[in-house]
Structure formats: C-alpha cells, structure tokens
Amino acid sequence: MNKFVLPGEVVAQGSYRGWSNLLRIGNNYIALFVGEVEQAGLRLRLIRYSGPYMPKAGDRVIGMVTDIQPLSLTIDINSYVDGYIMANSIFRRRIDASKVDLSKVANIGDLVLAKVQLTERGKDVLLVPERNWKISGDATVTISPAKASYMLRQKDGLLQRLRKHVRDLLVGANGVIVIRGEGEGLERVKAALNAINMAKGLTDIDKVVKEVLEVG
C-alpha cells in the first residue's frame, strides 16, 4: 500500500536507483509535495496530489491555440510554459515559409490534441500534433493535472465507466478533458469530473465517481 506524505517528510532511507518528486539529502529521500509514495524495487515515486502541470516527453495533452506565428502555433497547455507546434509537423513535410499560411489551418481558440516531444528547462514545450489534431467537443472541463494523470493510469476502467455515458471522452495529461455527448449523460460526466476535482486526494476518486454516476 502506498504511503501518504507531506512536504519535508523523510520518505525512505538508503540507496535507490531512481526517484521522482523527491529530494535526496545524504541517505534520506525527502518528499517535495503532498502525495503518496509508490515503491517498486529500488525505485521510489511520489505521486503528487496538487501542483501545476509539468510537461514531460511522451505526454498527450489537450491545448488551445493562443497565437498564430508564420511557422508555428502557440498553444496554452494549462502549464507555466506554453507549447508550440511547428508548421512542418502539421503538414508532415518540409515547409516553404513564403507559401504557408497557418491561419488557414487553425484559428485562435481551436482545441488541439498533441504529444509533448521535447521539454527544455525555461523554454516553451515542443509539441507534435496527433493525426486528428484539431478536436472539438460538447464540453471542456479542466481538472487538477495530478488527478488527470491518476485517471489515465487507472487500469480498472475509471475512464471506461465515464465513457459509457457519452460518445467520447479525451483526457489530456495536463488536466484538460474534452467530452463529446449530449443530454443527461453529458451532465452526469461533467458532474463526475467536477466531483473528481473536488475530491480529497486521489484515493476517493473511484468512490466519488461511482456515487455521482449512480445517483446522478
């Protein structure tokens, strides 16, 4: 069972091969966030319960176009850094700057689905658009990135349970969720997502979703 920790607590002592969201001082591993600690062999991981979205390569995120440059789109990815999509990754070929007009393929406010390709400290995040990168939905909900990443990690079908009530549900690792559906199902899923956002920690999420979907 994972252990709950608060910032400053000594999570473990000894020598581990890998650790994340922890600070090593001598032989002590110190928690940097509120969360729970998962141990697998010689690896330690603190699963954060709060905090901003910290992009990492491979994450699938949902963002909004906020600016159109001659050769790139600036994307708000619900983080402290912006993301950008290069024109050549949209057209999937080399681009002649004089012949490209990105305002013909995207507008400010469009929602996009993309994968984080490169993060560099202090710089914007390079994104690569998915094949169907421009997305739309009937509702967009933003939840805590920590909770979104918990939903994506769950193997027991938390997402499947929500998807039963709508046509589709896209979850970005950055906490942005796009719902496609209508009527009562849509309202139930929105209520469930809001309840997830309000839930204490991560351990209550399954219970909260069950309650909202059954009662709702």
């Binding site: 608060l6 910032p7 400053g8 600070l23 966030f33 509120v34 954060r48 709060s50 905090g51 920590a146």
Partner: peptide
Amino acid sequence: ADAGIPMRDL
C-alpha cells in the same frame, strides 16, 4: 504546499 510548489520543508 497546497499549490504544489516543491518544498524541502514546511
């Protein structure tokens, strides 16, 4: 701590 800013201690 609530905002999730990494901290060595309270």
